[in-house]
Design a binder for these strands. Structure first.
Lengths: 176, 176
DNA sequence: CGAATATTTCTGTTTATACAGAAATATCTG
DNA sequence: CAGATATTTCTGTATAAACAGAAATATTCG
């Protein structure tokens, strides 16, 4: 597989953006290649396409599988593992968010619950810290609950809601 | 300023989480210290508290000011710049999102518009790539518009909406 | 205006991550 | 089960980011 200039532009940008959000550049590039590929690719093809080592591809694919957005598929008469990427963009981002919430937000929630609980003991005697930590905890709790609830909605329903934008507030009579 | 064990726990966690989201560890730690501090701190105090170099603090504070969540304040009879952090958690995250959208999402939107426009030329003749890029573009356009619209809402209104969670869809009769 | 203090910029070093290539392991096929 | 092929793990190296400390610049005050 050889990338066209157009595809290269997307792949490089995607890698760059991934890096800014704490996702390894190569991981993001591989994701981009698989996203654009009309057929599953094997690891060696990916390594050749991007000019990176086979082992690097192997580890990066593991990472992408950890996000549940890439999976192994097998073709009859082909011994190699092949990889395909989820093509539904909405579903893809929802899966990525699921995982990042699990890895980063949930532990933060736990930490905040612990520190708030400790800070609010009268013996600690640091009301200001307690108040700040508690406000942060409230924020994370609310966001977490909001995410969990909207997560249960179907993608088309979420899209419809997003399209309404701030009209939602007006329709529900929630003052700006 | 010396951090209590409790404060250390928060500061270290915050630094770690920042790093996972592409924000420099020290930048996030300084943010955490300022967030917990009931009074503005000067750069040297911060450097001492965290045990990092003065220059490092200087650059990190610039970064935080770039996010508009930290600002310089002056006290009468004090020559040094002092820094204070926004304490309203909601407003803080909204400002961070503003900036990340500007730095990362907007350029991605631009890239996608360019590549889609190019990919859809008949001469390019790669219908599959064009379709994938276009779907990604639709997603980013929708999210971007949604963000811009909800951004105009007041924080209390956003909070009320979040608290409703998936009830919003039910109230509006949007099927799950 | 000169001394003192504060801040930023610059430069070299350190450190953590990303990575390649080799080695080891696993899997398939005849 | 032996040979071939595919995959993963391991280890050392390269690279880019983070950082400290020094130097340069700016600001304040007597």
């Amino acid at each position: 597989m050889t990338l066209t200039e157009l595809q290269k532009k997307f792949v490089l940008h995607w890698g760059e953006m991934g890096a800014r959000w704490g996702i390894n550049r190569t991981v993001a590039q591989i994701h981009a290649v698989l996203y654009l590929s009309p057929r599953p690719l094997d690891a060696e093809e990916i390594a050749d396409t991007l000019g990176v080592a086979r082992s690097n591809v192997s580890n990066s694919l593991k990472e992408l599988q950890g996000y549940n957005i890439v999976r192994i598929v097998h073709t009859l008469g082909e011994r190699r593992d092949q990889f395909e990427c989820m093509k539904d963009v909405w579903e893809m981002f929802r899966l990525i968010l699921d995982e990042r919430k699990r890895r980063e937000c949930d532990p933060t929630l736990q930490m905040l619950r612990e520190t708030v609980s400790e800070a609010e003991k009268p013996s600690t005697g640091d009301a200001y810290t307690a108040a700040r930590l508690n406000e942060m905890l409230q924020f994370f709790e609310l966001m977490s609950n909001w995410y969990d609830q909207t997560r249960k909605m179907s993608t088309p329903a979420v899209i419809r809601l997003c399209k309404l934008g701030d009209k939602v507030a007006k329709m529900l009579g929630i003052a700006g």
